[in-house]
Design a protein around this nucleic acid. Structure first.
Lengths: 318, 318
DNA sequence: TTGTAAGCGTTATCAC
DNA sequence: GTGATAACGCTTACAA
């Protein structure tokens, strides 16, 4: 008992005793068993769960780092898993995190089926959604102003005279859908028709994006500009443009390394991914520490995007 | 007790009873407490620790994904932390992983001071080192043939007639030191002197690498070729070359996205990072399952590098 | 096939 | 200030 107190820096123990205990522990290589501790002290396993769709994507890696940084400050450990955009798997992983009694979790939801993320299914463990919006559930989330970023970029293209603008992006997980919505809205506001043949939303990686872009470039009436809904698609499109020696306007979502070094001007809706991770962690840690019931009042953080332009003037339309 | 058995799929329970239990559990949203379970069943918290130096570095993100993939197959969870190349922090994190009774851990050691990673200090928990060599301790590790990759690249440069070759890299953590050793060896074999003014080993990120490369390019006798010890330095050097409109031979370690799209030819010692993560996880899982004492026989996996060349013929020396 | 008792390593509570 | 006792939720061993 005294050992327990000493290791916990409880003031109810003589400094001398404390020192003797610590020394003995040192000698024996003794370490308090955190498993046993968390079993007794409920609501403090000292672990936070993080579920992302693809760890190797620089985007989520940055997000993870942001989360980790903040958690590390509070001496909390991160349990990270990959959902691979699979809702089934996500459900299982969430389940496991609950069973492990993590103090909270941050999830990039794989889909719009999110019932398993509702507070009532988590035994009171707080959740924060990141990067994607909550659908039909009341939980904190931090996301990007996807709609606005897409709207801004599209509007600029229209101002520059573009009429045939292609949209290439990943399957319509929420963020991509929002970006498409911003694109459509900007076109509608300018009373421009959308050629559905110029919309391609199935590309998850660079290789498939390149194929899709090439097909678009080979159309009888190719687009004069591309709006790519994420970095994978921007890079794939760039590859296709370069291979075909095409010269149209390249625009996209997400900044990426070397974007400013391409031999084609690029305009991007950029943002601070790491900050997003930090914000998510902040929301979560606030819930954890204040022990607020999850149904308190839901907080939403929407981070802005910044339009950046690399490599000289953008090609004009028509 | 029967519940415990039913949830564990113990055959010693009537199928009917089992079904009733499972249904009730479903109804009540009951989940077995994994913390309590791991407390009783020693050596199976179902968690693996992963310590990397920088999560946001695509290199480690890929490594993490490789590890995660394999662990997920065995239904093990990953506790990931960032050491930020800080040995003190690494020591604390290792300590915490031991206290959490992880089933094993994979560590990218921050330095050469690795006593805290020796089996005797881990209470029997197996470790595998990744990416960097074990120093003065007997543990499994999986690494790259850093020496050979650097040697090959340098040799080619010499064949191409280069005499003034600059080496730019991060501080001499093991991998960088090995690469420098390979560089020196190739030069020595060709009986070429090394101009120590062309060696810069302090750059951890792209920005500082760019500065270092610019300084080298501004020397009275600038190098005719660069050998960069990692992707951060390769990219930084590329930026400096491009800004200065210099045209010398660009070579480096690590493949990276868009390397093939630069407007300068590049030669790289490339390798499969994800495979490295998988190998590390395989070694670890083997130890975990076989419950081999850590001092059994140490396994080392050395992964080869492949020289790739992008963007046409490389500039010749002299 | 099911239930009982003990114990995993810690901490809350209450005596001393 | 220190120590005994019970309890956290589970599983192993054994009895019913």
């Amino acid at each position: 008992m005294t050992v327990s107190r000493a290791l916990r820096d409880d003031p109810m123990v003589l400094p001398e005793t404390r020192d003797r205990v610590l020394e003995a522990a040192q000698q024996l290589g003794y370490r308090r068993n955190e498993l046993a501790r968390s079993l007794r002290v409920r609501g403090s396993s000292g672990m936070v769960g993080l579920l992302v769709t693809n760890l190797a994507n620089p985007f989520y890696a940055e997000l993870a780092l942001g989360v980790e940084t903040l958690c590390a400050q509070r001496d909390m450990k991160l349990v990270v898993s990959n959902t691979a955009d699979n809702v089934e798997r996500e459900r299982d992983l969430v389940d496991d995190l609950v069973a492990r009694r993590v103090d909270g979790m941050i999830v990039v939801p794989a889909g719009t089926e999110q019932r398993h993320l509702a507070p009532s299914n988590l035994g009171g463990i707080p959740v924060v959604l990141a990067a994607r919006r909550a659908v039909d559930i009341q939980v904190d989330c931090v996301m990007l102003d996807d709609y606005d970023g897409a709207h801004q970029i599209t509007s600029r293209l229209i101002e520059e005279g573009h009429r045939r603008i292609a949209f290439v992006g990943p399957p319509a997980a929420w963020t991509s859908a929002e970006r498409l919505r911003g694109f459509r809205a900007a076109m509608a506001e300018a009373r421009l028709p959308i050629d559905e043949a110029l919309l391609r939303c199935e590309q998850r990686d660079v290789a498939t994006a390149e194929v899709a872009a090439r097909e678009l470039l080979n159309l009888e009436q190719p687009p004069t500009a591309f709006f790519c809904a994420n970095s994978r698609n921007t890079i794939g499109t760039y590859r296709a443009m370069r291979a075909g020696r095409n010269r149209c306007s390249l625009n996209g979502f997400d900044d990426f390394e070397l974007a400013d070094m391409l031999d084609v001007p690029v305009r991007l809706a950029a943002y601070d991914t790491r900050a997003m991770g930090r914000h998510a962690a902040e929301l979560l840690l606030a819930r954890i520490q204040k022990r607020e019931p999850m149904d308190q009042l839901v907080r939403q953080v929407v981070l802005p995007t910044t339009i950046v332009q690399y490599g000289g003037p953008m090609p004009l339309g028509s």
